[in-house]
Nucleic acid binder design. Structure first.
Lengths: 124, 124
DNA sequence: CGGTATCCGGTGGGATACTG
DNA sequence: CAGTATCCCACCGGATACCG
């Protein structure tokens, strides 16, 4: 994970760069709600409360915080309209778009995994 | 994420199944050290202290805990040899092996991402 | 060598209330 | 509608010590 402000790379503290790159990606997409937020944004631009409705269990506060982090990492962009009532739209950046194949593959893997686990469950 | 013991699926608490499947995968591979552990296990069976040497900053305790979780999720298998001094080997299960493409893709994405971020860094 | 047990500080994240 | 601010507690994870 590279720090946008300092330019410092956490890989510098590791002797093994490649494993760190895996970790970089994980840090960008993990975080309690990021996967789900990203998944919904794959579908197109969404407003703040639209995301809240799509993710009923997330709190207002956490949605804000997770979106801020995704913004910092330049995965998500925020567009604010100067109207009343306020209107803010969130969408993937060009960099964020490059995550699409990974997110979709993760969804597919999750499907297969759940099936396998359910089968093992029934057998035992 | 399906609970191996209860068979309960956290997706049941969601109206939207597909986003939950993404989350399932994230929950399996995230966790503070799992990505790196998995990455090293892609390379083949490793002993406990071998992993510690590969991941110098991980503590003894955390390596144990993370391996236990990966075991519970049936991603990693533990093989204990009855010898003195003890010898324990960790390797990917068949299910764990299916994560290989995702992990490798994550590594590639991490590489590209770091390059892009470094470029933006220099320009500003 | 490969663990587990205990202690304990830091922080992630929920609940709630307030703002433009 | 979208976002902060504050409070507060659970739990994550480090340090350390001990065990087969």
């Amino acid at each position: 994970m590279i720090d946008i402000k300092t330019g410092e790379n956490h890989c510098q503290h590791w002797d093994d760069i490649s494993s760190c790159l895996v970790e970089t990606t994980i840090q960008v997409i993990s975080g309690k709600w990021k996967g789900i937020i990203l998944y919904h944004l794959l579908d197109g631009t969404k407003r703040f409360n639209e995301l809240r409705r799509l993710i009923p269990t997330i709190t207002h506060r956490m949605l804000t915080l997770q979106l801020r982090e995704l913004e910092e990492h330049q995965i998500v962009q925020r567009k604010e309209y100067s109207v009343v009532p306020p209107k803010v739209e969130y969408s993937l950046t060009a960099v964020g778009e490059t995550l699409r194949p990974i997110i979709l593959e993760m969804k597919q893997w999750g499907e297969k995994y759940q099936k396998v686990m359910l089968t093992k469950q029934k057998m035992s």
